[in-house]
Amino acid sequence: MGIEYDYIIAGAGAAGLSLAWQMLHSPLKDKKVLIIDKDLKLQDDKTWCFWHSGEPPFQKLIHKRWSRVEVESAEGYITQSLQRYPYYALKSYDFEKKIIAAIKKNPSFHLLESPIQKLSSDPDSKKAYLHTPENILETSYIFQSCFDPFKIHKSNVRYPLRQHFLGWDIKINTSIFNSDVFTLMDFDHSFTGGVAFTYVLPWTSKTALLEYTIFSENIIAQEKYEEKLSAYLSNRYGLEPDDYQIERKEYGVIPMEDRPALPWYKPRIMNIGTQGGVTKPSTGYTFMRIQNQVKNIVEGLIEDNRPLIYSPSKFRFKAYDLWLLHIIYNSPKEATTIFKQLFQNNKMDEVFCFLNEDSILSEDLQIMSSVPYRPFLKAIWKSKKRLREIGRK
């Protein structure tokens, strides 16, 4: 019917390139694989961060590592050491450059810059098809991160929250930042339309990435983020616009919804990354869960030529996420209080262990008992039907 490949990766973002990298370092390296995206130009427009116990993935590409974190707690700012879960930042430009260069060195792997018109499949022939303006490309499996799953629409989502942010990479002439400590959440109490905070990643004493971040349903105008960042730099560090240069901007919108995770777009077409429900709803963190998903896919293809379905969360963690989404959506001020109490009453290693879903039930109960219980009792009652729906997925 058209040009044939063993596998096609539709989308060259974090998920698609992570899958290509995993294939390149496996027995699948000799398969005929296509990586297609509408734009393959390298762009320095994203910073991916994660905490991790043990050796991090893409260790040689890590832009910065921190072992101390600052948060705003119920009693003001606190700084803690991270002994088990250091925090890492990785630049999308470095990541894309490394993996695309590796793809180009392998004659079995091919890159194609082209719009993707649609994806289709034929279960009887066990084939999937990717349609471009010029060709129909044929394969046994497509792994896609370009399109929303067909069954996802507004009626599937009870709490349509999004994490949206704008960040500035700035440079100043004097040493102000403590490059050993990053700020995870410095809350903006003047914002009423959701949970809002500033996130600070100091690269050096004179350079940093600052992001104004909101958990809410509605997106604000870009100039509003910039006004908040300018005010934060003035109030926290005494910096006026003439004191710093904005060297780069990045903007993002990440779903924090209670949408079900749907592994298949169509037969033989698997959803990966955020489109596959990999993003953790209550935090928006995705990168490490992508790495787990692509490992599962490759393991399945090697064993019996069928990708393994990755289930990112056990049922109890789905419940915790749903309850917190309910609180953020309906009572953002209560959600801010919960975050502050969480940081005040626990070690950050314990918090990261819990958010990473590495904790055992007794540790979960300890975390839950450290925050106000009334909002959670209300959330448990109000979302019980929704939890049953999600639990069946």
Score class of each variant (00 low, 15 high):
Val278Leu: 06
His25Pro: 03
Glu138Arg: 15
Pro372Phe: 04
Phe58Trp: 14
Asp30Asn: 15
Gly252Leu: 12
Tyr265Thr: 07
Asn218Cys: 00
Asp122Thr: 07
Leu82Phe: 09
Glu226Lys: 14
Ala261Asn: 12
Ala231Arg: 15
Tyr237Ser: 07
Ser331Phe: 09
Ser331Asp: 15
Asp242Pro: 03
Asp148Ser: 12
Cys353Lys: 15
Lys91Ile: 01
Phe352Asn: 10
Asp39Ile: 00
Glu357Arg: 13
Ile302Gln: 13
Ile269Glu: 09
Phe354Ala: 04
Gly273Tyr: 04
Val200Gln: 08
Cys146Arg: 12
Ser230Ala: 13
Asp37Asn: 07
Gln291Gly: 03
Ile297Val: 02
Leu161Lys: 11
Glu247His: 01
Leu201Glu: 05
Thr337Leu: 13
Pro27Arg: 06
Ser53Ala: 10
Asn346Pro: 08
Tyr159Ala: 05
Ser121Arg: 06
Pro133Trp: 08
Glu217His: 12
Tyr251Glu: 14
Ile219Tyr: 11
Gln222Val: 04
Gly76Phe: 09
Ile309Gln: 12
Leu34Glu: 03
Leu325Phe: 03
Glu96Tyr: 11
Cys353Ile: 00
Lys295Val: 01
Gln22Asn: 08
Asn305Thr: 02
Ala231Ile: 07
Pro160Tyr: 09
Ile220Phe: 05
Ala12Lys: 02
Gly194Cys: 10
Ala14Thr: 11
Leu130Asn: 05
Tyr320Asp: 03
Pro86His: 08
Asp180Lys: 15
Met288Asp: 04
Lys384Tyr: 02
Pro312Leu: 08
Phe58Cys: 09
Gly252Lys: 14
Gly194Met: 09
Leu90Cys: 04
His52Val: 00
Lys224Trp: 01
Lys46Tyr: 10
Ser370His: 07
Ile269Trp: 03
Ile8Phe: 03
Ala101Gly: 07
Tyr373Arg: 14
Arg68Ser: 14
Val298Cys: 04
Ile219Leu: 15
